[in-house]
Design a protein around this nucleic acid. Structure first.
Length: 317
DNA sequence: AAACCTGGCAACCGCAGAGCA
DNA sequence: TTGCTCTGCGGTTGCCAGGTT
């Protein structure tokens, strides 16, 4: 239900702030999100007393303020996974982000553009095409996959003896990020976010924040998450895995029921996460059947990826 | 010490798709 | 059906800190 713009468009536009977020603005947004949960972003901006457009609030929350973000440098495994997924998905940063715990599409995009792209360029210029099938090249960032290879991989994924499946196995051995990210923790942090309206006491208030570069709120929030983990008896942040990386955490309105059904039988009982949760198909509203990647289809691709040993989660048939 | 350069990254912009009146 | 709004995504810009000259 849309609400009339009581302020008037021009009036509103003139007052909207741009640029870096101040600590006060961050605190307002955090406080509002933790108390009221997710809703219409323009309403959030208005109700939280922020002179920002809803879009700006959404970006700030998703990229910096939401509690399950993993800060700091990318690990080697994450790096490898990004390179791998980029070779498969291209610049579909949101899809890539959905497969990396606690990382945002913006973060990955920046990392790719500033670091990985150059590194791959250097590797490409120093690597002979004849060596491209060597596993070391994979690790070096040269992905020996083109669309045809990919098609073959997808088609062959059911026959473990095929050479392309063997390629998959090579990949699986080289890229083992999920083993550390999720194998030990078959729960999903979104189960916590799904319960935003039922946030435990530790999340109800946000203290003073301080930090660097406008991201002062993150440390404080991580402290809150530690309390949250304690309250829920959850494993630590490193093992958190958001269902769709970017937006599932905050889209309580649309995901609440699904998460409650798929992840919880009651408040504290955590069940195995479904594969579509992990990969975010359902939550993106992208029906698998509709998601085409050039000449090959996304489902086949993900089936292929899911055949990798490091994807150690249950697949509902 | 100052000017300049560069890399990293936060934030904005424009577009597309979905949903609603 | 049409038009409007909202959301999400990818590309791009611009600021800032650190390094170099």
């Amino acid at each position: 239900m849309r609400k009339p713009d009581l302020m008037g468009k021009d009036n509103l536009k003139m007052k909207l702030r741009k640029g870096l977020w101040s600590p006060e603005e961050d605190e307002k947004l955090i406080r509002y999100m933790l108390t009221n949960g997710h809703g219409c972003w323009s309403d959030i901006a208005r109700n939280a007393g922020l002179l920002r457009c809803g879009k700006s609030c959404r970006l700030r929350w998703i990229n910096y303020l939401r509690p399950d973000l993993k800060r700091g440098a990318f690990s080697q495994q994450e790096e490898d996974l990004i390179i791998h997924l980029h070779s498969l998905l291209g610049n579909r940063w949101s899809h890539i982000a959905a497969r990396l715990s606690g990382r945002t599409d913006n973060e990955i995009k920046n990392f790719w553009n500033s670091t990985l792209k150059k590194r791959l360029k250097m590797n490409t210029s120093t690597t002979s095409p004849n060596n491209r099938s060597e596993p070391n090249d994979i690790l070096g960032g040269i992905m020996p996959i083109n669309e045809h290879d990919l098609m073959t991989m997808c088609m062959d994924s059911s026959t473990s003896t095929s050479s392309s499946s063997m390629q998959s196995m090579v990949f699986a051995e080289q890229f083992d990020p999920f083993s550390t990210l999720i194998n030990n923790n078959h729960y999903d942090m979104t189960t916590v976010s799904a319960g935003f309206p039922h946030i435990p006491p530790c999340m109800n208030q946000v203290g003073n924040v301080e930090g660097h570069h406008g991201n002062y709120g993150v440390l404080e929030l991580n402290n809150k998450m530690e309390l949250l983990e304690r309250d829920f008896s959850l494993p630590p942040l490193e093992g958190r895995r958001s269902i769709e990386g970017n937006s599932a955490l905050i889209d309580v309105k649309s995901h609440n029921n699904h998460f409650n059904n798929s992840c919880f039988n009651n408040t504290n009982q955590i069940q195995s996460t479904k594969v579509e949760d992990l990969f975010g198909f359902e939550n993106h509203g992208l029906g698998v059947e509709n998601l085409k990647m050039g000449e090959w289809d996304f489902e086949g691709l993900m089936q292929d990826i899911s055949s990798f040993p490091f994807l150690d989660f249950q697949v509902d048939q």
